[in-house]
Amino acid sequence: MNIVIIKYNAGNTQSVIFGLNRLGIDPVLTDDPEEIMKADKVIFPGVGEASTTMKYLRDHKLDKVIVNLKQPVLGICLGMQLMCAHSEEGDTSCLGIFDLNVRQFKAEGNRQYKIPQMGWNTLTSVHSPLFDAEMENSHVYFVHGFYVPLSKYTIATTEFIHPYSSAIARDNFYAVQFHPEKSSATGEQILKNFIAL
């Protein structure tokens, strides 16, 4: 199995590599379009800011490569947000795989909510091969100040201030807002399920 992690100016790729290593998988980290296109599975991770990372992807012509992939693709965190059409972060035009707008969390005076959301929250209404049925109400780890609203693509819902999409899917494209590589046994099982797609 040839698993490729897209290499770009995003943080945290090492954690994703280690997370896959723990499952006995040795992924390839590359920004070479040929290698990305011939992979069995592609992971598009990301921690960072939307406008600078999108600019990097365009400058390196990786934007066209990603949208045209036919094998299963998994976007993680910022990767998920960049797969949408637009992000309020830096008013950024994104890849447009999902015709959705990424919005900023606003606590609106409610001091109960600290932004970014940082910590463990639950997955609900899970329905996708990415998740096992028993993952309903299980915990995964989130760090984010922007979110993807609920839509027809939502495959898992989480509540922070209001319900939002903690995972979305369309055809071969899957994306999760949380960090499976930091989400204990649940996260490991989600990565295994993606690898098994």
């Binding site: 945290n12 280690f18 204990s184």
Partner: peptide, 29 residues
Amino acid sequence: ARKINIPFTVGGGISSVADVAPLLNNGAD
């Protein structure tokens, strides 16, 4: 980072951007 599947914070003696980069690049959250 290789062994542990939950987030972790590291510190002690950090005094510059150059000190931080290798810690985050090696898997600290």
